[in-house]
């Protein structure tokens, strides 16, 4: 019973870790007035991918096409557009592929649903397996739990025993 609770505790801990590690997404402040800085352009460009250079974020892509895209972002920022509006503009023009991850609609839901579901199935299957392993031979299980003193308690004792054995056989 104790083991089961510890397993749940462990699962809980892992889940908590999962939740807390979700990155917080900082939204770019849309600047009102004044020159738009390169950094503001890059904050938007970081999340976009141009079709010309596959898999390279727009903010570091060296091609001419990408430089044009960055100019367009600067223009829009100057006009007071927000980051989300600009991203949407690019999506409308060039399709979903400009986003770093597919927008969660239609079949794209599968991207986000399938891995967690499979992982949870894995957790469940593993848990069931633990249970079935422990149920089959109560005899052997008892051997371990009933005589804890006979089993080496820690690595120290393991080491000691190992050394003794070796010494004995060396002679």
């Amino acid at each position: 019973m104790k083991n089961r609770t510890s397993f749940f505790l462990f699962t809980f801990a892992v889940l908590m870790l999962c939740l807390s590690a979700l990155p917080s997404i900082a939204l770019a402040q849309s600047s009102s007035g004044g020159e738009v800085t390169d950094d503001e352009v890059n904050t938007v460009a970081k999340d976009l991918y141009c079709p010309v250079c596959e898999n390279i974020p727009l903010d570091v892509c060296p091609t001419k096409a990408c430089a044009d895209w960055r100019d367009e972002i600067r223009l829009k920022l100057n006009e007071g557009w927000t980051k989300d509006q600009i991203k949407q503009y690019f999506v409308d023009r060039f399709g979903d592929r400009v986003l770093g991850a597919p927008p969660a609609r239609g079949i794209n839901w599968l991207v986000y649903i399938l891995p967690p579901v499979l992982i949870l199935v894995g957790v469940y299957v593993l848990y069931r397996a633990f249970q079935s392993w422990r149920q089959i031979p109560p005899l052997q299980a008892e051997e371990f739990t009933a005589s804890p003193t006979q089993a080496p308690q820690s690595q120290d004792e393991y080491m000691k025993k190992l050394e003794e054995q070796l010494k004995a056989s060396d002679r």
Partner: peptide, 11 residues
């Protein structure tokens, strides 16, 4: 593809 260890028993 996510066949966890225990598919051995469960399947």
């Amino acid at each position: 593809m996510n066949q966890s260890p225990a598919t051995t028993n469960v399947s």
